[in-house]
Design a protein around this nucleic acid. Structure first.
Lengths: 218, 218
DNA sequence: ACAAAAGTGTTCCCAGTACACCCATGA
DNA sequence: TCATGGGTGTACTGGGAACACTTTTGT
């Protein structure tokens, strides 16, 4: 029985939630779009395999990327080569820099989640699970900061929520809610250069959970 | 590479959260307490393996038991026999009936989660994850009904929360909150026989999620 | 009649929402 | 000085917490 990892890599660019897709360079599903992934090696942890494949197939910077386990997909028949169990992972990347395809992928690109074509294997199902997990975790954790660079404005952080949920968020109340959650963000300067008043800059705080949560739909 | 399933089976008895433990009948860790589990067969889905092992090792009724995937544990060295990846599952059972040990387990029993001894493999870590998942899902889903029989009173449902969270819950506000969540419970009669006023009986509704959630700690 | 358990009504308060208003900068 | 984006103050409101009170049974 073989064990693989697949990774739903999400980022936010142009105000839209986007996922990293690779074009498969080998059979099965040669030429079809798929999630980055590959087999777990004998002496390697599962999360370690996910880290390795993430770097190999997308060229993203591990230090700036959040990575967590998502769920395991193991139905017989999900892989035509035989019995393969896939441990799916979720990665959240800051939207700086494009993707560098690896050796066994013919190409890697960002794709808005609304425009994703049919994917190889059961990767459509994995992608759905990843998106829903990310949307849900925005409510009760501070992972929104993982979509931003090392420094960000309140507006950039708010646009993470707006892009992921597809809703408008009141900037003034959002700011108060974030600043009222101890450990969510830490102020660290201001950024001039835009057209209006300079915005305060923040970096991610140390808190992981949000009490109370920031909830969608009333 | 071998793939196994392990199951955190939880129930509530005597007002306490309890977990099903088996005594290992074979090496490694022979005689040590462990979670129920076993290997995934060649032509079997992962969730199917969990169902099979649940019945084989505890004798619980599948129809009355909630079963979901929890997380996958795959560090090299977690099993002294070699590379074994375990897909952990979480099961919630109504507190009717004891456990029937299976063939490859020397015994099966309920154990209050506060009194759990050191377990085989990395099952302590798996158990912690299972308990935390159950506690968290009580907040925003209707799984509390899975700990009850087919019919239950509001007090029994409330005691699920009290036992799982280790806190007291105001019976009057709790009742209103549950009845105010459409699809959480459906009234289906009354139960006389106790010492006081007869309680209304409920059965589980069709809703899975809770909006708004029932939250712990303010 | 009384104790015990179930359920209702009422008050208080906080947090979320909506939105009017003030601030600081570039062109 | 005006447009633009950033930030603060304030009234309204709905849900949760606390708790007095009523209802319905067994003994």
């Amino acid at each position: 029985m073989a064990v693989a990892v697949d990774i739903v890599v999400l980022t936010i660019t142009d105000g839209r939630l986007q996922v990293a897709l690779v074009e498969r360079g080998i059979a099965p599903f040669e030429g079809a779009p798929a999630l980055p992934g590959g087999f777990v090696l004998q002496e390697e942890s599962v999360i370690g395999a996910a880290r390795r494949e993430l770097v190999e197939e997308t060229g993203l910077d591990l230090g700036a990327t959040h990575l967590e386990q998502l769920a395991t997909f193991g139905d017989p028949g999900r892989d035509p080569r035989g019995r393969v169990i896939s441990v799916a992972h979720l990665a959240l990347a800051a939207s700086l820099g494009g993707l560098t395809p690896g050796s066994d992928a013919a190409g890697a690109r960002w794709c808005p989640v609304q425009d994703v074509p049919a994917l190889a294997f059961d990767h459509d199902e994995i992608l759905r699970a990843g998106i829903e997990r990310a949307r849900a975790k925005l409510e009760y954790t501070t992972i929104a900061t993982r979509f931003c660079g090392p420094q960000f404005t309140m507006t950039e952080l708010r646009q993470v929520y707006e892009a992921a949920w597809g809703v408008e968020v009141d900037a003034r109340n959002f700011s108060r809610k974030v600043l009222g959650s101890r450990g969510f963000v830490v102020e660290c300067g201001t950024r001039s250069g835009g057209r209006g008043r300079p915005a305060a800059l923040y970096r991610a705080g140390t808190a992981g959970g949000l009490h109370p949560p920031i909830m969608r739909e009333g």
